[in-house]
Write a protein that binds this DNA or RNA. Structure first.
Length: 570
RNA sequence: CGGGGCGUAGCGCAGUUUGGCUAGCGCGCCUGCCUUGGGAGCAGGAGGUCGGAGGUUCAAAUCCUCUCGCCCCGACCA
């Protein structure tokens, strides 16, 4: 391809809308353009990278005995009603109607449609295990798209679904996908960290996310440097505290006037106590019924854990009105004593001796509150958000934390979809059984952004060879010069004939412009054809990421390029 | 949805407070000359419903009302 004909509109300046480095470079290097908030068009360089990533995915999945299919984007509401998710999914599902007012959605994910497909066509255990995948656009009407393609509304996802006859076999599928993911991301040049994860809207009971670490990440993970335990904070288990606690004698309950003191922070300042002494009392509406959550003042409630622990479908913080009804006081004076609703306590409260809580009375708090003596929770559970400094649940060492972006997630689903949708097969003994399923996603477009986050410098992108839009760019210092043109054309032909993806920058631009564009776009290897060395029959090879340079004779160019690409392609 | 901000040429912005001639600047784009080892120089040129609609006024990018879009923070999520 000749650069003069390549549709790669580079930008000299940073578009105002882009904050993240990957977002900026994707726009500046001409990989994509925005069409609407969270919706992007890919230009030739962008789609070439995406194709590279998808090809790696295909190769690795096919090796793992998976087969590619293609499912529709527009899906009928009926299927979603069968699984119960038409109501469950919420406003991020794009819903639409056809001319007959029939209801459809733009697929945010494809469990329903594939389960229905397999239900219709797969009848016997002899056909299992079955692993089917597609690479398809998905739509989620995100509340707030951001970070370019990292959180967009339309995005490209690879999703795979496994169907097995029993749990043992399904766990093998899970393991095979986990291993395939490890290889896929490694081949893309990405360092990823698998962490235990919550299953969210997809459901199921076992899941890992593949995280790319970085400050730009939207997720928070905790990990144990010692035993390797790593989990999204949404999921990370917290250990109960050593029951010992403080060896204090229980003091007498005492009411104290605290007008206008409604936050833990103010309370600790005024009473000169540590936040860990405060019994923070949060009122939630769980499936529209009020419940109280009691947690140490130095912790935050993990609502995902709460939802799971008390087995409710809908959970939200109660409004001022409800709080007033329940606690007989405005927000900020709730406490566990005398509340007429279930009180769920986090592990962190069990050790609090002579604690401070709201008095359920405007302007008052209570001092020397003690569990079991003054109140008894309905249950003591793991409800808090994990964070650095906590004890690892596996080995007891101290946890560390980091931010990350999820590029892939694997779920063990069990029979969550096959049961309600009645997707059955006949087992060896003639019995009808629901498929035991798993599903596995990779955010393809997001992966591209993550690669840029990990491979760039101040001049632009430094693509790993495996996903580079083109491997090599030839830059003649002046294409108008006969000798340079002849030499550049010659090398171009040689490399093309060798099957190497190469760009010839034949534009009538000054060399600086061509160098800047080459760096910005990030071709792994640049061949400069210039007057300095051409007389002796040499050209320069420059590696984009390491900046190393070497002179090679034109006769050796092909061999050198091949061996360098081979070497840095590892 | 709450809070904050922004819509003026392809990109980045000034002009809006205090209404006033043909709406500006830098980069990019086109033509010519010149130049060619890290975003050159000179000359000429094209490109605008000032996000949209309505209103006030002799006069609106500027004031008022409504509306649409975009960005950031938060709640939500892959």
């Amino acid at each position: 391809m000749r650069a003069s004909q390549l549709y790669a509109p580079t930008l000299r300046e940073v578009p105002a809308e882009a904050e993240l480095i990957s977002h900026q470079y994707m726009l500046r290097a001409g990989l994509m353009r925005k069409s609407a908030s969270g919706i992007y068009s890919y230009l030739p360089l962008g789609i070439r990278v995406l194709h590279k990533i998808m090809e790696i995915i295909r190769e690795e999945l096919d090796k793992a005995d998976a087969q590619e299919i293609l499912l529709p984007i527009v899906q009928p509401a009926e299927l979603w009603e069968e699984s119960g998710r038409w109501n469950e999914y919420g406003p991020e599902m794009f819903r639409l109607q056809d001319r007959h007012q029939r209801h459809f959605c733009l697929g945010p994910t494809h469990e329903e449609i594939i389960t229905a497909l397999v239900r219709a066509d797969v009848r016997s255990y002899r056909q299992l295990p079955l692993r089917l995948y597609q690479i398809q656009n998905k739509y989620r009407d995100e509340i707030r798209p951001r970070f370019g393609v990292i959180r967009s509304r339309e995005f490209i996802m690879k999703d795979l679904y496994s169907f097995d006859r029993d749990e043992v076999s399904a766990q093998e599928s899970y393991r095979a996908m986990y291993d395939a993911y490890t290889r896929i991301f490694a081949r893309c040049g990405l360092k990823t960290h698998p962490v235990e994860a919550d299953t969210g809207a997809i459901g199921g009971d076992q899941s890992h996310e593949f995280m790319v670490l970085g400050d730009a990440g939207e997720d928070l993970i905790v990990f144990c440097p010692d035993c390797g335990y790593a989990a999204n904070v949404e999921r990370a288990e917290c250990a109960p505290f050593d029951s010992a606690g403080e060896q204090e004698t229980l003091a007498e309950l005492e009411e104290i006037a605290t007008p206008d003191v409604t936050t833990v922070e103010e309370l600790t300042r005024i009473l000169k106590i540590a936040p860990g002494r405060v019994l923070k009392t949060m009122i939630y509406l769980a499936d529209e019924k009020p419940v109280a959550v009691l947690i140490g003042g130095d912790y935050d409630v993990n609502e995902i854990k709460l939802k799971r622990a008390i087995q409710c479908n809908q959970l939200e913080l109660a409004g001022a009105q409800t709080i007033r009804e329940v606690t007989k006081a405005p927000v900020g004076f709730a406490g566990p004593i005398g509340l007429g609703i279930p009180v769920y306590a986090d592990y962190s409260v069990e050790r609090i001796v002579n604690g401070v809580s709201g008095a359920n009375k405007e302007g008052y708090h209570l001092r020397n509150v003690n569990i079991y003596r003054d109140y008894t929770p309905a249950a003591i559970l793991d409800l808090r958000e994990a964070r650095a400094g906590e004890k690892c649940v596996r080995c007891g060492k101290v946890l560390d934390q980091a931010r990350g972006t999820e590029v892939g997630q694997v779920f063990y689903l069990g029979t969550k979809y096959s049961m309600p949708i009645k997707a059955h097969f006949v087992d060896q003994d003639g019995q009808e059984m629901p498929f035991v399923m798993g599903c596995y996603g990779i955010g393809v477009s997001r992966t591209m952004a993550a690669i840029i986050e990990q491979h760039h410098d101040e001049d632009g992108i430094c693509w790993p060879v495996s996903v580079a839009p083109f491997a090599v760019i030839i830059v003649p210092v002046s294409y108008k010069d006969d000798e340079q043109r002849t030499a550049a054309d010659g090398i171009y032909k040689i490399l093309q004939d060798a099957g190497i993806e190469v760009i010839l920058d034949d534009r009538d631009e000054r060399p600086g412009v061509k160098f800047k564009d080459a760096d910005l776009i990030g071709y792994p290897l640049r061949i400069t054809v210039g007057p300095k060395h051409l007389k002796e029959g040499y050209v320069e090879l420059k590696l984009r990421s390491s900046h190393t340079q070497l002179l090679v004779s034109i006769d050796d160019v092909k061999d050198q390029v091949e061996s360098i690409l081979d070497r840095i392609g590892e």
